[in-house]
Design a protein around this nucleic acid. Structure first.
Lengths: 116, 116
DNA sequence: ATTTGTTATCGTAAATCGACGATAAGCATT
DNA sequence: AATGCTTATCGTCGATTTACGATAACAAAT
């Protein structure tokens, strides 16, 4: 069933998994890229540029916010979203740590099958 | 509904999302780390070290394989799993590209709220 | 050919996801 | 106070995920 047995994994594994899960949808990747490119906050502009309804975009933003990757601030009648620098620092670090554990493919290793 | 409107996103966004989704579970992060540490193939050892049943571990491996992050080769009576170097090269590149688009937090930017 | 050990698949159940429309909530302006 | 604009939440639907036990498939050894 779905009473996920997360208790047995390290905090770093759980945090990285949560971040990866938040990025595990093309729309959320696209949202992050849009927020990164125009550094200023884009509020409902996201809805205009995405092939999704307003409520769906709002939910995606909620998930990104829950993962600590995005911040939202109320700015008058609208809400101003931007990337959460602290969250992305964590993402960089945790993903970097993981990649550091993984051997990089060399030409020799690519020639011979690298399994077994 | 869940007929995901992925058609409107770029191939890179979709591929990165698929990779991130595959990593979006602590058990799969743990599996990747285990395969990275003992570079030799661990077959059913994964089951012994994870708090999950054999069938559940097999499903997680299947998802990692579908995402191109893990390879499996039949080795006699057992199956030999290892990381897929090519897949991880793509993961490195795509995630690196994304991170390159995202401004790194500076001390000044951290002092002032970086939103709006 | 049968047995043994390992892995994959099937079937199932509860929870979550992804999407939408409709509605509520919040803030400015009128 | 009422209107208008923007965003969040609610309710709903089907699909997917996570997990398990049970069973099938498969390779090696007996």
């Amino acid at each position: 069933m779905a009473f996920h047995k997360h208790a047995h994994f390290t905090p770093a594994e759980q945090r990285l998994a949560a971040i990866a899960k938040a990025l595990g949808h093309p729309a959320r990747i696209a949202i992050v890229r849009m927020l990164a490119q125009r550094r200023a906050c884009v509020c409902g502009e996201l809805v205009l540029e995405l092939p999704l309804s307003q409520s769906t975009v709002s939910q995606h933003l909620k998930e990104l916010k829950a993962a600590g990757l995005v911040q939202g601030e109320v700015d008058g009648p609208r809400v101003c979203y931007c990337l959460d620098a602290a969250g992305w620092a964590v993402a960089r670090e945790l993903f970097g740590d993981l990649l550091a554990e993984i051997p990089i493919a060399t030409r020799a290793a690519a020639a011979a099958p690298d399994c077994c």
